[in-house]
């Protein structure tokens, strides 16, 4: 049990990371069955292994085309003419290349413009800064006055070199901390899961032993199977039997030889019951023909009433 759990604990984080990679690689290729490479017009239907990659300039092409075009180092993109290299082709995370581009740009900007609110004296200035960053991102994404913007970024980078480095460091540390916390949580979850497994196992074992005992009892006892089945059912059914007083172990001694058919009362003596009496009172009721009625019982009850408690002083 414990061995199994430890292996799962080790393997879980690995699995997670591999899952992430798999998802990244598979999503674009699997989703679209009629994807076509814009260069060689090869489509997925004909070659299911085809892999579409994205260039620096955000143009898709298949792997074989990349191999063919950029076998001799850098070359112009066949669609826009920008000089690209083979190394810079990447698997597209998003199907929409515009989103892909935006995310890349934003990542880059966030790397440089990593100031925080604490670095500003007032909220307004921070908001202005954010506005400025957003403007730069917008320009880059939509290709508006690219050179100017690039210059701006460079100037900013030089200006705030130290702060950027410090903030980057801080971010790194924070990430580390977050990771640690995450790991801790994972561990806790793992241990909880283990505990649950353990209780399950114990329950299973108990049921098994109960069953074994029951079979053993069946084998050794002289009672009929029916009877022992009913008693074991009482014990097994979560204490209900005990509550009803049916649990054999908890029966107190006085109840063990209790006979419900035996009377609880002492007999009343002093009279002898005759077969027939002169009885003008009960007979007129005409009950003697009713099923289950016997006039003897009426007489006996009256006689008992007459002789009970008579000698009490």
């Amino acid at each position: 049990m414990s061995v199994r759990s430890s292996t799962t604990a080790k393997s879980t984080p690995k699995k997670l990371s591999s899952n992430g990679i798999n998802r990244q690689g598979e999503t674009p290729s699997n989703d679209n069955a009629d994807e076509v490479c814009p260069i060689c017009k090869n489509n997925r239907y004909l070659s299911p292994d085809m892999k579409l990659l994205v260039s620096e300039c955000y143009h898709k092409m298949c792997e074989s085309c990349i191999d063919r075009l950029f076998a001799n180092g850098a070359g112009p993109c066949p669609i826009c003419g920008q000089i690209v290299r083979k190394v810079n082709f990447a698997i597209a995370t998003f199907e929409d290349l515009l989103v892909e581009k935006e995310i890349k740009i934003r990542k880059r900007i966030a790397h440089h413009f990593n100031k925080r609110q604490e670095d500003f004296p007032s909220l307004k200035e921070y908001n202005d800064y954010l506005e400025e960053v957003e403007k730069i991102a917008w320009n880059l994404i939509n290709g508006i006055s690219l050179e100017e913007t690039e210059a701006k970024i460079k100037a900013y980078q030089q200006e705030n070199h130290d702060l950027i480095a410090a903030n980057a460091q801080r971010m790194l540390q924070e990430e580390k901390l977050a990771k640690l916390v995450e790991e801790q949580e994972l561990k806790e979850k793992q241990s909880e899961f283990e505990k649950y497994q353990k209780t399950l196992e114990e329950e299973r074992k108990m049921k098994a032993t109960l069953k074994d005992e029951f079979i053993e009892e069946l084998r050794s006892s002289k009672q009929t199977a029916d009877h022992s089945a009913s008693t074991s059912l009482d014990i097994a059914s979560s204490g209900v039997g005990m509550w009803l007083g049916l649990d054999r172990e908890h029966l107190d001694d006085s109840m063990k030889d209790y006979n419900p058919a035996a009377t609880e009362y002492a007999d009343v003596d002093g009279y002898t019951l005759r077969e027939k009496y002169y009885d003008p009172f009960t007979e007129v009721l005409g009950l003697s023909k009713t099923g289950g009625f016997n006039i003897k019982f009426v007489h006996e009850r009256a006689l008992q009433a007459a002789f009970s408690g008579i000698c009490d002083v």
Binding site: Y271, Y277, D279, H299, A302, L303, A306
Partner: peptide
């Protein structure tokens, strides 16, 4: 509540062993 009525009827029955005059007993 237990009343003497039934006991009285019981004596009425038991006294039949003691006397033969049933109308008087009644």
């Amino acid at each position: 509540v237990h009343h003497p009525y039934r006991a009285s009827f019981g004596f009425f029955l038991d006294l039949q062993n003691f006397t033969k005059d049933l109308t008087k007993l009644k």
